[in-house]
Design a protein around this nucleic acid. Structure first.
Lengths: 361, 361
DNA sequence: GTGAAAGCGCTAACAT
DNA sequence: ATGTTAGCGCTTTCAC
């Protein structure tokens, strides 16, 4: 099935290579210069678009570049300039919807600023894995690092973060030592919980994210505080793992409990799992039980019923990361620890309603 | 709102810098060598774990490295070796679930092989944007390129793919010229369609992906062929854009048509949109209308009802990409155009059932 | 076991 | 407008 074309060197148009050397060397400026009959300096000038080159010479150089398929060698350029025009991103494998959106925004913002992204995936949320990733990145050619991951891990990696390399962290509590960009989890969870309370629910049950997650912790704390502030009872926390399956498991238990009329899940996937359990148990959403999620993933409004959820602006988070990082890169002295908060808001859809009248369950 | 903590330089523990030079230069091998009282050559040997270094000397060098926080400069290393240990990945922004999974697998496989990933996002599926991305990548320090995107775009970029740089393309019809790794879209779509037919449905309606997508085209063609082979009527193709919203729009029309008893959507999101429309119209899934998706995204089994869909092994695709690419990188002469097919299979869940008995609608 | 020299491809600084 | 020189940080080659 594999078609092999008749063997000819990948470099075509330059049959000048000595027959002995089978090793393939990429064309360099010197090669272009030789072909065009100029110095490599002139080639450099052409490549960098300097004005002080004769139009005639420029054309000749351009033609030569084209002929031998010249591409600037960024390693040499980086070696010379000390800049790599690359930003390293550390994040978990199989990351959540939100992380992917953030990564996307980071990549776009970086591209706009002329930076590339080097991705270092971390398979497991262990300290060693994170430390290894940071080290690999430090040896990589990067001008700065964005870390997108659960923050509890960061408690100890600061010893490992290489000296002098600008770092921005997403959703972390390390604001005292690092530049962090954080979503307003607290306000989001408050909005969600209060919305349910305002609808008339006696209390709100909560499916939390994993204990290891900083964001999850903040949402849970805010949910609890909102309940307390309203004088509502605080049900036991149900811990999930961000996946729909874990929401489903808790949802099965919740569905069996007639007391439950409102559930706030810490992300949309778990909310989806809860709704599935509710459907299976024949408990109507939202007539009997209201459900609120967190994230506002793209599919949330196609869920059944369309999910009321807390919208996170991942794009803004990504853009801010790059903005902060570039600022640090441009002026290394201006190290600015501190946290920038990106607001959240509640998106009302069809999964919430007032509780059923008492005695009707 | 942003908390700025008292300004102190990010560089701590190294107050050795000469007061005159405010420019921050990363420590080099020469610095380590000077401190350890050896030549930089010896430092190089230590860094590369060569055996012919005295244990004593090695310790001294190690200590010096530690003291000044030395990190090898990968640009210099790449310049010398001609290898970058980096693979470039070109893919669309806001990519689909599948692309993200593929990226994840590519990144993991690359990491295992000691390669980093440089991500080049492409905002728009225009030819210019793709060409620009390829060029940026070519100027980047990469040893090879993986292209993850809709394939119709590739018809014309081959002129732009830089000479001699190994390339692997995912889900493309360019197998004659490039190494491509493709999922068995045809078999997947056939399985989905045939499953519905086997259930007793007279025909199957189809929500296709965008016309520009190669994968979508293959799924649609296979759906049509399967219908024809079974002697079933072929309804008009409904074209969506991969998003749940477009599935919903077509779903509304489908729900209003009592003839419709089976729908095959070209991805899970659109299937979700269809189901939402069906629910809203009071048409029961699967009792009245069966729905099948494609992808088997992680949430699919938490949809209501849990979605029967075609499973794609994105992880395998990613792993194969790296495997093929590394083979090309290691032996540049072995250019192997050809397509490797990754199988798909149908995952039966609860969104499909036999059609309602005639005259009962 | 260790060091000295040369050069990877590029560009800033200085000629001309 | 163009060429020459030097050096970025590292490693390969050869000498000791």
């Amino acid at each position: 099935m594999a078609t092999i074309s008749p063997g000819d060197s990948a470099v075509s148009g330059v049959p000048v290579a000595p027959p002995t050397r089978s090793v393939q060397r990429l064309p360099s400026m010197a090669d272009v210069a030789a072909l065009a009959g100029v110095s490599s300096q002139t080639v450099s000038r052409v490549v960098n678009g300097r004005s002080n080159v004769d139009a005639d010479t420029r054309d000749r150089v351009l033609a030569a570049m084209d002929e031998i398929g010249y591409r600037p060698n960024s390693a040499a350029r980086a070696l010379k300039s000390g800049k790599f025009s690359t930003i390293g991103v550390i994040m978990f494998t199989l990351s959540s919807f939100g992380n992917m959106r953030t990564l996307d925004a980071v990549a776009m913002a970086a591209a706009e600023a002329g930076y590339s992204i080097t991705l270092i995936p971390v398979a497991l949320p262990t300290q060693g894995a994170v430390a290894g990733a940071v080290n690999r990145l430090a040896e990589q050619a990067v001008d700065g690092i964005v870390i997108i991951m659960e923050a509890h891990m960061l408690d100890r990696i600061d010893v490992t973060v290489p000296t002098g390399l600008p770092v921005v962290i997403v959703d972390s509590d390390a604001g005292a030592r690092y530049t962090v960009v954080d979503t307003d989890q607290t306000e989001g969870a408050r909005l969600a919980t209060q919305h349910l309370l305002d609808l008339g629910h006696k209390t709100v049950w909560h499916i939390a994210g994993p204990e290891s997650s900083f964001s999850a912790g903040r949402r849970t704390a805010s949910w609890r505080n909102t309940l307390k502030a309203a004088g509502a009872p605080v049900p036991p926390v149900l811990e999930g793992d961000w996946n729909a399956a874990s929401g489903y498991v808790h949802g099965v238990a919740l569905a069996a409990n007639p007391e439950v009329t409102a559930v706030f899940a810490s992300n949309d996937q778990m909310a989806l799992g809860v709704m599935r359990a509710l459907h299976e148990a024949g408990r109507s959403v939202p007539a009997e039980v209201s459900v609120v999620g967190f994230d506002d993933m793209r599919e949330a409004d196609a869920f059944w019923p369309p999910l009321t959820t807390v919208h996170q602006d991942f794009g803004q988070v990504g853009r801010l990361c790059i903005e902060k990082l570039l600022r640090q890169i441009d002026s290394p002295s201006a190290s600015v620890p501190g946290t920038t908060i990106v607001p959240t808001h509640l998106v009302l859809r069809a999964s919430t309603a007032p509780p059923p009248p008492p005695g009707l369950a």
